[in-house]
């Protein structure tokens, strides 16, 4: 993963609350292979009409925002599903940082795993930034090492958990890191199974699955015997 240290780039304001993952990438595009790029799906139904023509007035369609690599968005950005495709769409579009008062937890974690910085700016600082931008794209400098955003001669502190900052700064790969702990993991797994034998899924059970009995013991249709026992 490419390390993230400092980014001086054009930022595009998208100051809506609750821009959810279904808006970031509508589900119908998620069958596509990543190889062909997900950037064209980003905010698809806000950017394009039913015929696929760009919607005039949507800020990402403004030529002045064409080179944006930072988004400045409203609270609870990326709420909703765990689809990492929402992050792929942003990254493939060219976005490396989203600044918002808050993020959906799973989205933020997915972002960090793809080198995309979710920078949390508390409400007052966020308002000062968006007031300064005045609804138009503008140049910002995001310094992850110092956890600061500089704009128009001003400067604001943003927050990000230490672990995520370290990971972004170093471009760490978790799988490689974890495999160094293989022995500790194996010992833990063996010990857990010894102490709690019931944690292992049973493989010799009957196929089926009981449903709770109907409270009014509804009539059973002739010939409609259920394949599973109903013995709760």
């Amino acid at each position: 993963m490419e390390p993230f240290r400092r980014l001086a780039a054009l930022a595009c304001p998208l100051v809506e609350a609750n821009i959810d993952t279904d808006q970031l990438i509508p589900a119908r595009f998620m069958k596509e292979s990543r190889a062909s790029g997900y950037g064209r799906f980003l905010l698809h139904d806000l950017r394009f009409d039913a015929e696929g023509a760009p919607i005039a007035g949507f800020i990402l369609n403004d030529p002045a925002a064409a080179d944006a690599r930072i988004l400045v968005a409203g609270r609870n950005f990326g709420a909703g599903s765990s689809r990492e495709a929402a992050v792929y769409a942003l990254v493939d579009y060219g976005v490396r940082c989203v600044i918002a008062p808050s993020f959906g937890d799973i989205f933020a974690s997915n972002a960090v795993n793809n080198g995309l910085l979710p920078a949390v700016l508390e409400e007052a600082a966020f308002e000062a930034l968006t007031d300064w931008m005045g609804g138009a794209p503008a140049e910002l400098v995001v310094d992850l090492e110092a956890r600061r955003i500089a704009y128009g001669g001003r400067d604001a502190a943003f927050s990000i958990p230490d672990a995520w900052r370290a990971k972004l700064l170093n471009g760490w790969d978790d799988i490689a890191l974890t495999r160094q702990h293989a022995a500790a993991i194996e010992t833990f797994a063996r010990e857990r199974l010894r102490a709690f034998p019931w944690v292992a899924p049973r493989t010799d059970g009957p196929r089926g699955g009981a449903q709770p009995r109907s409270p009014d013991a509804g009539e059973t249709r002739a010939g409609g015997a259920s394949p599973q026992s109903s013995d709760l």
Binding site: S82, E84, A85, I106, N110, N113, D174, I175, T178
Partner: peptide, 9 residues
């Protein structure tokens, strides 16, 4: 719930 990178992990 987890994302695809975490699923891979």
């Amino acid at each position: 719930g987890i994302g695809a990178s975490e699923v891979a992990h």
